[in-house]
Design a protein around this nucleic acid. Sequence first.
DNA 1: CTCTGTGAATATATTCACAGCC
DNA 2: GGCTGTGAATATATTCACAGAG
Lengths: 245, 245
Amino acid sequence: MTTPQDRLARDTRESVRGIPDATVARLPVYLRALTELAERGVATVSSEELATAAGVNSAKLRKDLSHLGSYGTRGVGYEVEYLVYQISRELGLTQEWRVVIIGVGNLGHALANYGGFASRGFTVVALLDADPDVVGEHVAGLRVRSTDELEDVVAAEGVSIGVLATPGPAAQDLCDRLVGTGITSVLNFAPVVLSVPEGVDVRKVDLSTELQILAFHEQRKAARDAVHAAGLTAADEHDAEEVAQ
Amino acid sequence: MTTPQDRLARDTRESVRGIPDATVARLPVYLRALTELAERGVATVSSEELATAAGVNSAKLRKDLSHLGSYGTRGVGYEVEYLVYQISRELGLTQEWRVVIIGVGNLGHALANYGGFASRGFTVVALLDADPDVVGEHVAGLRVRSTDELEDVVAAEGVSIGVLATPGPAAQDLCDRLVGTGITSVLNFAPVVLSVPEGVDVRKVDLSTELQILAFHEQRKAARDAVHAAGLTAADEHDAEEVAQ
DNA sequence: CTCTGTGAATATATTCACAGCC
DNA sequence: GGCTGTGAATATATTCACAGAG
């Protein structure tokens, strides 16, 4: 049984028009591949070609794109420029997003200088750090300001997304303060699980998590090779060896 | 009839293959939460407590842990130290993984200095960069060497995992050379889709992808709020009646 | 009683396979 | 003929809900 509440909750979680999370997570990849094709002067791609460029299979790509609408031409393919626009619009990249980066260590530096933001509508409008020695430095054309000014900066600069690149222990407090200003989107590089109220989205990027997942698969490969070598091969078994992203 | 061979083959396959990808991806999170609890001197946790600390719900946590074995005690919970060990073992973190970082820009610096690696069995044994000005610098206690030496370094240092933190255009070539040395696990921070032969695992961390996903949800929230604000007067008939009671 | 471990139910995601349009 | 868009089939993942161990 599905209650009206269930349906509302699902619609809210997914999207007004129902784009699955897994699809949303892949749209940026398609967008990158398309941008590259556009730069190379390619006007049209088939789902097969684009899928290869994006590292997925073509059925998945077509299904994903079908959630946005019917933007391809049967027998021909997709017009690159047009698809770039449609995906950008769907992702909300046709507007400017003003971002504050908190924590200007090596990672903060890398993020501040990262070219991939500006080209997709993200403008880093402020850098904050708690360390008085770092405050006042100029990084990526911005003067680093104190985290004391967080609330002022968010208000004055119209920030809508906060990026945390601080050490773990500092992150929760700064996150609380971001949320206090009304920000509802946080990208967290600090190695902690942030707790936030309902309605606030946190995405976490964890450098060591990814290595650990690789280690798991590497170990599994080693174990399988050992079994192989010992002659205990299960001939009926063939597992496709591809890491799910 | 079940022969001993059958049972061995099955047991091997299950223990090697049986853990779902989604579970594997969460194990590092549980491990981090458990490590924190251990440092705070907590000896035992319930699935509810651990789930909260890890930011998931308790049913999922229990299901995930059940794939590793029966390591809890009904009516009590899980012994923290023991679970740390079991998860570490399952992820392959009880052995040392020797890692090379290629590309020593801001991100490479951040990775080289990141404390979260060493504590989980990852040893950064070499740093490589293509820029002659960077080669020779000392970062995180290691002398940066030239990417020309890649093959030598991998062989001499017994590297099993490669981390690419280079600009996009350089990544595929360096990846090919890593694969050429026999490496089958690559963590890619460069903003390109790498193509690798069957049997090689690539995981990709993309700084701007995550921001784009946030932007999508932020846009959606804004759209919903707008509808809400505009639609308050034209409220849904039935709900209004029920609320009146 | 409490809290784990797990079948059964549900929800999501992927893949297949082909009808329908260019 | 070639390629998209999509139902139907399958595979994965999540959540429910409760039996049963301690």
